[in-house]
Design a protein around this nucleic acid. Structure first.
Lengths: 347, 347
DNA sequence: TAAATTACCGCAAACGTTTTCGTTAATGCT
DNA sequence: AGCATTAACGAAAACGTTTGCGGTAATTTA
C-alpha cells in the first residue's frame, strides 16, 4: 500500500465534529460548544467530549472555522528580502508574539519590486490574513494599493520602511538622530570629506538618514559635495561600479557613511580590490545588523537597529487590535533607538 | 468615521459569487465555472463575468475554496531558526517556486526545541497546509510525531537535517565527502592536530560530517584524540567556554574543523579574546553560508552548501506531488554538492 | 422526421464549523 | 399547585465555494 492510498483510507475515517457526535450520542453543536468550553454545557459531558477528542487526536478544520468565523488566525509579513539579518531578526520578534497568541505567520517577499508587492497585496483582499506587518520595497512610489486595502478594513502595521500617508502605527527608529551621530562621529575622528551612500530616495528612512548626515555637515560648517552623495539601486554590480568610481576619482572622500549594510559590504569589497586601507585611507560607518561586524577586517562600526524589538512591537500593536476590534490602531510613530557600535573601521 | 466602522460598512457590500450572480442574472455555479474557465460556459458569458469580476476586484474566499476543495494552496516551512544565512537562502529557494505556483508559505520556527517542533507539527493535522518542507531541530531524537503525520497522508520533504526513518525524499549535500575534503585540506596544509567542533550527535548530518573528518584522519594515519572532538549544544555561552578550554589546554590543536558556522564564529571570538592568531596559531575551516566570509579577519575558509538550490529542489519535489497526487514522493536522497572556498583562515 | 447529440446553464448538495434560536426537563418561587 | 426561571442540549441556518446531476433549447445525425 503506497502513501497515496493510505492517505485516502485515512481520509475516509477522518474525525470531525460529526464523528465525535455520533460516537458520543450528542449533537454536533454540543460537541463544538463543549470543546470551546461553553457555559451551557455540563461539566460532565465536557470531560466526556474532551477525553474522546484527546484520544482521537481531533483538531478542528481551520478552513471551516475561518469561513464561519470570518477570521483566519493568520498574519502576513511582507518584506523586501529575507537573506538579511535585519529582517530575519524582525521575523524572530514577530514570531515570538505570534506563537504566544497561537497565530500563524505567512511570509511574502517583494524582492524590492513594486509589481510583486502589488500582486502580493492583492492576495489579501479576501480574508486570507487577519492583518499585515510590512516594510515597503524600494521600488514602490505609488501607495494606492496599500491605501485601498487599508480602507477596506485590513489592519496594517508598518515597520522601518513605512508609508506615512496611511493612518496606522509605524514602528521606526531614530534614523535622523543616529545618522547625525554617525556623521558627527566621523567628523570628530578628523574627517571632513564624508561621502554618503544610500538607496533610492523614495523611502522615508533614506531621506531621514540623509538629512541627518546633511545636518551634521551643516553643524560643522562642512560644505556639501553632491558628487559624494551616491544613490544606489538594488542592482549590485551597478552599485559596486559607482563605489569604485567614487574611490578612484581625483577628489576622493576620506570616509563613507552608508545608509544600508549592503553598501558598506560593497565598499569593503571594492577597498579590498583596490587595496585601500580601512580605516587609514577610508573610514566606514553603516547601518547594519551583521552578527559578524566585530570580526570583519577591520571590524565594522555600525548603527544597529533593535530589529527583534521592532518585530515584537509591530506584532504587539497588531494583536492588540485583533483581540479587541474596538481598539483602532492609533495613527502614530513608535520610535525605538538604534545603538552606535564604534569599531575599528572608523578608528 | 474610524477604521473599524468603515471596515464593517465595507463588509456589508462584500462582493462574492452571489453578488456577481445577482448582478449578471446568472446562477452562482455559472459564475464560478466561468471564472475557472469551464468549457461548459459560453465565451460570451465568460467575458461578461470576467469583466465584472475584474471591475469589482472580486477575489474568491480562500477558506470557502479550501474547505470545499480540501486543499489549501499553502505549504509550511519548518526550520530551527531564521537568523541564519543557510535557512534564509533555503527559504528564498522555496519562495521562488512557491510564488511561481501561486502557493502561500507559512513559516514555523522550532528554535531547536523538540517540544516546539511537536506542537508545530500538531498544527498540521487538519489540512492547514498541503505539505511540509522541514529541517529537524537538534533537540528531536524521537521521530514519532513526524512518522504519524506522514502516515496520515501529509506530504513531507526533508532538507539538510533529515529524518532517515521516513519514506520520503531528502534533499541533502555531500556531507561526508566535503568534510573529508575539508579535513584533508587542513592536513595538506601541514596540520595533524585537528579538532572537530560539532553539535549534538543525533542529526544525520552531524554524524556524516564527523565521520568524514574521522575518515580523513584515518587515511593519513593520524590518531584520533577524543579530547579534540567537542560536542556543543545550542547553549552559546557553554559552547564558547568549551572552545576556550580547548584552546587553552596544554595539548592544543593547531586547527579546527567546525560542522556549523556558529561554532566557527565562536572560535573567532575566542581567538580574539585570547589573542590567538588565525591562521598562524590556529587554522579554521567550517560549514558556512556567511556572505561576509571573505571579509572576515582573516577571511574564512568555508564549505558552502547550495542553500538556494536546496530550497528550490525541495519545493519542486513537493509540488510535483501536489500537482499530481498519483506521483508518490519517492523514497530517496537527492544529494547536492557543496563548494570548498579556500581562504586565509587555513593559509 | 424522429432521435440523438451538443451547448449552456441552474439546482442543490456538499465541505466542517459556529451560532442563533428553539426545546425539554428540572428547579425555584409565590 | 401554578408559574417563572434555569440548566442542558438539539435543529438548522449560516460562511462562500465547488461540483454532480439534471434540464432545456438548439443543432446534428440517421
Amino acid at each position: 500500500m503506497n502513501s497515496a492510498t493510505f492517505a485516502k483510507n485515512k481520509r475516509m475515517s477522518k474525525i470531525d465534529l460529526k464523528y465525535l457526535s455520533k460516537e458520543l450520542n450528542l449533537s454536533i453543536s454540543t460537541i463544538s460548544r463543549a470543546l470551546r468550553d461553553d457555559w451551557e454545557i455540563s461539566e460532565k459531558t465536557k470531560v466526556r467530549v474532551r477525553e474522546l477528542a484527546e484520544k482521537l487526536n481531533y483538531s478542528p478544520n481551520p478552513y471551516a472555522s475561518s469561513l464561519r468565523r470570518q477570521s483566519s488566525e493568520t498574519i502576513a509579513v511582507v518584506i523586501p528580502e529575507i537573506a538579511n539579518n535585519f529582517f530575519t531578526l524582525v521575523i524572530n520578534g514577530i514570531e515570538s508574539v505570534a506563537r504566544e497568541k497561537n497565530y500563524h505567520v505567512l511570509i511574502y517577499l517583494t524582492h524590492e519590486d513594486y509589481e510583486r508587492e502589488l500582486s502580493i497585496i492583492n492576495y489579501f483582499q479576501n480574508g486570507r490574513t487577519d492583518g499585515i506587518l510590512m516594510s515597503v520595497s524600494v521600488g514602490t512610489q505609488d501607495y494606492r494599493h496599500l491605501q485601498e486595502i487599508h480602507q477596506n478594513g485590513m489592519p496594517i502595521v508598518f515597520f522601518d520602511r513605512v508609508c506615512p500617508e496611511i493612518e496606522t502605527t509605524r514602528i521606526i527608529t531614530d534614523d535622523f538622530e543616529s545618522s547625525y551621530n554617525a556623521t558627527e562621529h566621523l567628523i570628530k575622528n578628523g574627517c571632513r570629506r564624508i561621502a554618503c551612500l544610500s538607496m533610492t530616495d523614495h523611502l522615508s528612512i533614506e531621506t531621514k538618514r540623509k538629512s541627518g548626515y546633511l545636518q551634521a555637515l551643516a553643524k560643522y560648517d562642512i560644505p556639501v559635495n553632491p558628487d559624494w552623495i551616491i544613490e544606489c539601486t538594488n542592482d549590485d554590480p551597478l552599485s559596486i561600479s559607482r563605489i569604485r568610481m567614487l574611490l578612484t576619482s581625483s577628489h576622493k572622500p576620506c570616509s563613507i557613511f552608508a545608509t544600508v549594510e549592503k553598501l558598506a559590504i560593497h565598499t569593503y569589497d571594492v577597498c579590498k580590490e583596490l587595496n585601500i586601507n580601512i580605516p587609514r585611507k577610508l573610514k566606514v560607518i553603516t547601518f547594519s545588523n551583521l552578527t559578524t561586524a566585530a570580526l570583519l577586517n577591520p571590524s565594522l562600526t555600525t548603527i544597529t537597529q533593535p530589529a527583534f524589538e521592532i518585530g515584537k512591537q509591530a506584532a504587539t500593536v497588531l494583536f492588540k487590535h485583533l483581540y479587541k476590534k474596538r481598539f483602532a490602531i492609533p495613527n502614530e510613530d513608535i520610535v525605538l533607538k538604534s545603538d552606535l557600535h564604534i569599531r575599528n573601521s572608523t578608528l
